[in-house]
């Protein structure tokens, strides 16, 4: 058995070192959004002036910069009010560009084509849904602003690790015009397997581990 343990330890450390090294090599500061908080700004121009926080940070710092620009969330009753974005006129779409307005996001509201707004940023979570530890519980938020659920639940507050996954699905800021040529981000991918029927109504909560 000693040989098996030695081999297992070797494999373990080889894989761990490989993953950590690869993670460091491909570390990318440019696409890192602010960690999501209840008080994060929802105005795209305000958001753009705030320095980004490195991914993996275990501190939630965005709220400090936005304290004076958004009302503090104190109860569930006023969460939606507090989170309602200030609507500024969206820039006019040009040829080959798409404006990530709330109305545009609302069109992508199914498990097979799922966009979501989180703290003023728009994400395409279509390919992530099968991997979501909470199962299909995020599907009802497709096409909508899911910030309050992400930050404080239900079902629970998402971790900083969840924050760290967001860059992979980021399309652009709310009301930002993005090029329609970003087809991998904008188009619903064909590779995601369909959720089994009994999970599509969000009646089964999966787990993180």
């Amino acid at each position: 058995m000693k040989n098996y343990i030695t081999i297992s330890l070797f494999i373990f450390w080889a894989v761990v070192v490989a993953i950590l090294t690869a993670g460091l090599v491909f570390y990318n500061n440019n696409n890192t959004p602010l960690p999501i908080t209840a008080n994060s700004g929802t105005n795209s121009t305000t958001t753009n002036t705030i320095a980004s926080t490195p991914v993996g940070s275990n501190t939630i710092s965005g709220s400090k910069a936005n304290k004076t620009s958004a009302p503090r969330v104190t109860s569930p009753a006023n969460i939606n009010t507090a989170q309602t974005p200030v609507i500024t006129p969206a820039p006019a779409p040009t040829n080959n560009s798409v404006v990530l307005s709330a109305a545009e996001v609302a069109k992508h509201n199914t498990a097979s084509d799922c966009w979501m707004i989180l703290s003023g940023k728009v994400y395409n979570f279509t390919s992530f849904i099968p991997s979501h530890p909470g199962g299909s519980s995020m599907v009802p938020y497709c096409g909508r602003d899911g910030t309050s659920s992400f930050v404080s639940g239900p079902p629970h507050r998402h971790s900083s690790f969840a924050d760290s996954l967001l860059p992979n699905y980021y399309i652009g800021d709310l009301n930002q015009a993005v090029s329609a040529n970003q087809t991998p981000l904008l188009s619903p991918p064909n590779t995601s397997p369909a959720l089994p029927a009994n999970l599509q109504n969000g009646d089964n909560e999966g787990n993180d581990d």
């Binding site: 761990v16 993953i19 993996g56 275990n58 690790f161």
Partner: peptide, 22 residues
Amino acid sequence: AVRYLAISTQAAALFLLPNLNS
């Protein structure tokens, strides 16, 4: 950790690191 490689190497690496919030 390896399952997160499908998302990104960074995600897999972050999973392996101690998480003070968890």
